[in-house]
Write a protein that binds this DNA or RNA. Sequence first.
DNA 1: CCCCGACCTGAACGCCTGTTTAATCTGGTG
DNA 2: CACCAGATTAAACAGGCGTTCAGGTCGGGG
Lengths: 230, 230
Amino acid sequence: MRSARDADATDDGDLTTRARLRDAAVVRFARDGFHRTTVRAIAADAGVSPALLIHHFGSKDDLRLACDEHVLGWFVAQARAEATTEGIRTVITAFFADPDRYRVPMDYMARAIVEGTATGAHFVDTMIDETEHYVLAGMAGGTIQPVADPRAMAVFIASGSLGMLLAPDHLARNLGLEGRNPEVMRRVAGPALQLYTTGLYTDDTVQRVAEESLTAHAEDAGSGGKETGS
Amino acid sequence: MRSARDADATDDGDLTTRARLRDAAVVRFARDGFHRTTVRAIAADAGVSPALLIHHFGSKDDLRLACDEHVLGWFVAQARAEATTEGIRTVITAFFADPDRYRVPMDYMARAIVEGTATGAHFVDTMIDETEHYVLAGMAGGTIQPVADPRAMAVFIASGSLGMLLAPDHLARNLGLEGRNPEVMRRVAGPALQLYTTGLYTDDTVQRVAEESLTAHAEDAGSGGKETGS
DNA sequence: CCCCGACCTGAACGCCTGTTTAATCTGGTG
DNA sequence: CACCAGATTAAACAGGCGTTCAGGTCGGGG
């Protein structure tokens, strides 16, 4: 399982000090965020001095880069392992199913996304790209309806996953559950499936009205006039 | 418009120093987050000394409480103003439509949510409650299909709004747009309406398969036994 | 007039931060 | 053995943080 290029572990299976520092940092960054985490706390978690952390990584920012690369690599490996047809989307589903195993990397990514790092942006981009690919494949195969703007559809779908990724505790709480809980996914799956197969509205009045008001707005914006009636 | 109890402005219409400090803090907290913002920066924005900020608010944490209350009050007033049938959900839609006006309070709330403050939790709860109420009303009125678990449906729907609230820049970027842009909402509205009226899949195979695998998982967990055949 | 409270500030305090420095320990190599 | 390179540390550094303190200014009431 262990690839040859990473020398994270010694032959007895113990982790390198550098790897222990990196792992401790990942946990802290995931739980508390980058700015609230101190190098002293990470070093203490790994059982070494703060100076050694700097010796190994150069600076706190470079440590973050190392953590980014490590977690991103974990996701890629994970997606490759469960490479049925989708990828990261499957992992996100598994997030709620087996929270203990996925919590740290998921929380780390959530932090990376809201803190605006390049890794977080890359993750979101991949997520949306895969969703778009899934939609296009479904359209080609006839399992998914024709979609006028597949990219926008992918963004909208991914937005839902993003909400679950970035605010899982809030969603769980609103289902009367506490913390990360597989039950959240189980409760939400039913409505999600209903929405994706039959929609929510009974007819297309809402769609028609909304689209009319939307095109009207577009004309307002296009005309450039200040007030074109109501 | 100005209520009598808040003495935010003098009679000439200029803002109180306290109000200017609070507003400057809201802008900074929204843009940079609570921990990355320094009281010195806020005081400089308001053109006063850091000591005066402490004099008025007691501490940085109490300043945050004052900001929380202020922004939450703004949302309540806004929802009341646009009190058609929904509330905060309407505001979120308007977010992308008129980004310059809503950016600061929306970003502030997004920070409050990911930073785990009581105000952020309260906001999410309200959002989901209103969504659930909307679903129930639609079901009663016949415009919305029967939903087995309306609460879970509300949570799932709100999760999408949450994604747009917490990561608007990432979504815009993936549509080839930059920053907060009304165009994002316009692009996403079409797919959203399609999904909510006709769904995404052409038939119910996915729903059937998923629900079967879900109940199978539930039985595994429920039986408590290790392996009950396949 | 004086005094008072409110508004406001410069300077400092103590603490915590990321980082540096100089030194020590350790294990392998000639 | 001598030697060296890497791992490791205690101690200190400079800077930024939230906060405190002593005092200054200023308009209104006795």
